[in-house]
Design a protein around this nucleic acid. Structure first.
Lengths: 336, 336
DNA sequence: TTGTAGGCGTTATCAG
DNA sequence: CTGATAACGCCTACAA
């Protein structure tokens, strides 16, 4: 059995209150008794029980992190960002993978509430109404990372996805391309399916290119689907493609390559996310950099602020994105 | 304020004991009162407080997962494995990134103990003596995933790293290569630095090739270092290279390529881990598949068994590895 | 400066 | 079958 505060008290010949005091230096204790307590702690090998403490003070210093899938490309970075900042402020994180499954999401949120998390950082492309309801009724604050709810009621940190897509496609038009295809995320996804598509359309409009629906195919962020999507676009004889993720861009390039064409010689490709795939893959891929780590870190920072009830200047943080130009659009990189 | 068991009791006109009973159906309760309680729960929106419960029953249904870095290639998969199984058995996981830093490791383990985790799954190339000491003195069981302690005191799940390296290099010798280089992990790493090197040596011996120390360079699993290491090996005019990780293999290939040579035409390369880099990268990379997901999943399964005090047939699980032959050693893959 | 005692929200042991 | 009540380990007025 682990030693408790009682054991320490007995050992040091003081009351448990005194022990508690030196533990939290919440009040002045004589140097002498303090030392006795410290000795007793060492002697008994006492470790405070965070459960009991949390129960009493109504804080767990724990936050829940709900993500689609830690084994995908984007999320590990953001979780790392969350965790680093959390650690900095002595918070621990519960990690939950949902696969964007509604039941799992619900279930986890329920459990996290029961475990009395102090806050929740949520990721996932879509915020369902049912989930939104729970969020609004929770006492623990919620921060959305890399997503947003329709009405922007919840604090969130994101990039400007529409503008980012706009920048990507604009670059393509600036290169003189007229027939630009796009592989989007699922239609139901407000970000990868909608905002980025809007950016694409706007860039076309700006370049006075008429939008054609047959040049847009819906992907699901998976390699296989994207590969097939690209095959369809090839039938349309596109001369450039904007994919809503790097993974889909890679799949697209492989499809192009396997069809006997070359990137960037015959077709230009732009991805999204700047996952390390985009620079490890050859040709290296022009892409939009989303600051994954920062999205996580800033989300957690925002959470800390909310938890400490500090005044918050802005509940919706928009982080900068960058277009990174690489070989897949014909840029010659200098060798290291 | 959240409703507590008391509120429910009052609402249903029963004692808190009865409420607790229906909550856990730990004893028979009349259907009628049961219904009253259920109604009261719904009405009050009561959620049990897991903290209080855990404090009482001395179990948190939470396990700590300590890993080097969730944003690296290998660990996300294994964490996913852990989490899936944990979820299956209603456990939650605390995620902790250590960067293999001793202080961080110590610190996290301390905190996890205070938070009363039921078990700990630990990853990291090296098990320091100081850490080992803590492990032995903890009441929560520890499982090592993808690592092992020198004396094999702790339960662990791994592949046979020596045999795996042996298989990789043997394949290279079977291809007729005589001058085979190796980029290892850090020397202090018992697995990536030692076991895999041993396997390399043994395969050479088996092929009656004399071991030359100048053909072995120490890497640190990072891209940059490996790139430079490969440059050194090129001076030795190796005709094949075995890298202790895929990332290092990719770096090696890039170095070879940037030096004006080609893979597999001029030099063959074998990696380790079968991260998705190895099949997304072109040329695709021959590698050893380590079942990352399974390592995580089985570790957690082992943990569950230990926690439920079931008889355990084997405390050291060895999972199968596979040599996956791809383009980097001259294999012509069929196109999808 | 230190000690006493009540309570955080549960579960579990007794009686009844 | 149900209700008091004592823990679980800690914090914190309130007293002394």
């Amino acid at each position: 059995m682990n030693a408790t505060i009682k054991d320490v008290a007995r050992e040091a010949n003081v009351s448990i209150a005194t022990v508690s005091r030196v533990l939290n230096n919440s009040a002045v204790v004589t140097d002498e008794t303090k030392q006795r307590v410290l000795d007793a702690i060492k002697k008994t090998g006492y470790k405070p029980n965070a459960l009991a403490r949390s129960l009493k003070i109504q804080k767990t210093h724990t936050i829940g992190v709900v993500i689609p899938d830690i084994s995908s490309t984007f999320y590990p970075e953001v979780v790392r960002g969350v965790e680093d900042v959390a650690n900095m402020y002595d918070y621990n994180i519960f990690l939950c993978n949902t696969d964007q499954d509604e039941n799992k999401e619900m279930n986890y949120i329920e459990i996290l509430r029961e475990k009395q998390i102090d806050g929740l950082i949520f990721m996932g492309n879509i915020i369902r109404d049912t989930i939104m309801e729970v969020f609004m009724s929770m006492k623990a604050p919620v921060v959305l990372a890399g997503t947003q709810d329709k009405e922007l009621k919840l604090p969130n940190v994101n990039i400007d996805n529409k503008k980012a897509a706009y920048d990507a496609v604009k670059y393509l038009t600036s290169l003189g391309h007229k027939k630009i295809g796009m592989i989007t995320g699922p239609k139901t996804d407000p970000i990868g399916g909608m905002l980025r598509l809007e950016g694409y359309k706007e860039a076309l409009k700006k370049a006075k290119i008429r939008y054609k629906s047959e040049l847009v195919v819906e992907g699901n962020f998976k390699v296989k689907q994207a590969y097939l999507s690209m095959l369809k676009l090839l039938e349309q004889k596109v001369d450039a493609v904007f994919a809503a993720s790097d993974e889909m861009a890679v799949a697209a390039i492989n499809a192009i390559f396997d069809s006997g064409l070359k990137v960037p010689d015959d077709i230009h490709v732009v991805g999204f996310d700047n996952t390390y795939l985009s620079y490890m893959f050859r040709p290296t891929i022009t892409t939009i950099q989303q600051p994954a780590y920062d999205i996580g870190a800033i989300s957690m920072r925002l959470m800390i602020k909310i938890l400490s009830k500090k005044p918050i200047d802005e509940l919706h943080v928009v982080l900068p994105h960058h277009l990174i130009i690489r070989e897949s659009t014909g840029y010659e990189e200098e060798k290291k």
